[in-house]
Design a protein around this nucleic acid. Sequence first.
DNA 1: AAGATGACGCCCG
DNA 2: CCGGGCGCCATCT
Length: 96
Amino acid sequence: MFTDMLAVVRRIPKGRVSTYGEVATASGHPGAARQVVWALRAATNVPWHRVLGAGGRIRLTGDSGFEQRLRLQSEGVIITGDKIDLKRFRHVFRHT
DNA sequence: AAGATGACGCCCG
DNA sequence: CCGGGCGCCATCT
């Protein structure tokens, strides 16, 4: 399960983002958004900063949230307040 | 075994 | 936009 989710997260290209819910669904585990968090927490070498809450909101709190902002901005993602414009940066998973 | 937690999501007022 | 409530589910106490 976690491995499936991590595989999905790893597919998010630089400069693009996704959401916990999207990752859960795309990995074959719809509704398991909370488990995506667990997967990211336990994993390493994954672009965790590219995963946001529904609506493109940064759900991370405190210092980590600040870091996520910096990382996203450094990839060219525009952040307004605490939200990201999904219309513009959301990554769409596909099966080729 | 039972209750609490959380980087969640969705609906309603 | 903001707050409140409920469903969800692996993990931790």
